[in-house]
């Protein structure tokens, strides 16, 4: 059976080869995992700040929140727009377009392979974190862990679709990756990577809830950290964003490919 040109064998081969490919870049990926330390820097500031009491995260809850935010971020990093831009520039895109497989699947597989490569490094950082802050150690329940996993994957799906949308704009404009840079700024501030959403003034918070950003870090991180959180509202919002983005991406992709082949580039 094929869904968007996928079957079991293709999935196995694609994931296997992409994982092997990403293993070749393990040194870079390790550095990349290390460059995500921003949540820990923010944690150290929040811990000593007198605004901490307003967060609703006391004791070790704050430590757990920021570690979870780090982990969620590690497994929802998306770079499809850069890979796509390079492929388009180097002319690798045309052969992909001829294959009976939607090219986006190739990028999905690459991301999953990269996440698998990143896993040991992220785990190592978590171990170091617990060595420094032993009182913050916790193991989520199996159910909680699976829910957090699901939420992280949904976050990855939203981020991936969102960036694919920007990537498809590459068919029209060379400046598409600049858009990615611009959307990254509100993401950093509104996703919960630097401050839990409870730190925001109520008005800002209510407004941020209408953007996809809080569902990329804050929601999955709270699930992972075992915070009380409205699961139905969170997953509902994630699903809604996927439902909005998926058809948009597919439509725009088709129009882009048509334009690309018409230009004969």
């Amino acid at each position: 059976m094929r869904i968007f040109g996928l079957n079991r064998r293709i999935i196995r081969v694609l994931l296997g080869s992409q994982y092997a490919h990403m293993l070749e870049y393990r040194a870079e990926i390790a550095l990349w995992a290390l460059s995500g330390v921003l949540p820990f820097i923010m944690l150290s500031i929040w811990s000593g700040s007198d605004a901490r009491s307003g967060l609703g995260l006391d004791g070790v809850a704050l430590d757990r929140y920021f570690l979870s935010a780090y982990l969620v971020r590690q497994f929802s990093v998306v770079w499809v727009v850069y890979a796509f831009e390079e492929d388009a520039l180097l002319g690798r895109l045309s052969p992909y377009l001829l294959q009976p497989l939607h090219p986006l699947w190739r990028y999905v597989a690459a991301h999953l392979g990269e996440q698998l490569t990143r896993l040991p490094f992220a785990a190592l950082i978590a171990v170091v974190f617990f060595a420094v802050q032993p009182q913050a150690f916790w193991l989520p329940s199996l159910g909680g862990f699976l829910l957090a996993w699901l939420a992280t994957w949904m976050a990855f799906a939203i981020a991936f679709l969102f960036q694919s949308l920007i990537a498809t704009l590459c068919f029209w404009s060379e400046k598409a990756s600049a858009l990615e840079r611009l959307q990254f700024i509100p993401f950093v501030f509104l996703s919960g990577l630097l401050a839990p959403l409870t730190a925001f003034p109520p008005a800002v918070r209510a407004w941020a809830q209408w953007t996809p950003f809080p569902y990329l870090i804050d929601f999955p991180a709270r699930v992972l950290a075992g915070q009380p959180v409205d699961l139905i509202a969170g997953f509902g919002a994630q699903l809604a964003w996927i439902a909005v983005l998926l058809p948009l991406v597919l439509l725009l992709w088709r129009a882009g490919v048509r334009r690309y082949s018409a230009m004969g580039a």
Binding site: S49, D50, A51, R52, S53, R181, I185, P186, F189, A199
Partner: peptide
């Protein structure tokens, strides 16, 4: 545009640290 957005974000974040 990126610099303006980034700076206002940083200032907003900084303001969050100022509690009572």
């Amino acid at each position: 545009l990126a610099v303006a957005m980034s700076l206002s974000g940083s200032l907003f974040l900084l303001s969050l640290f100022y509690g009572p």
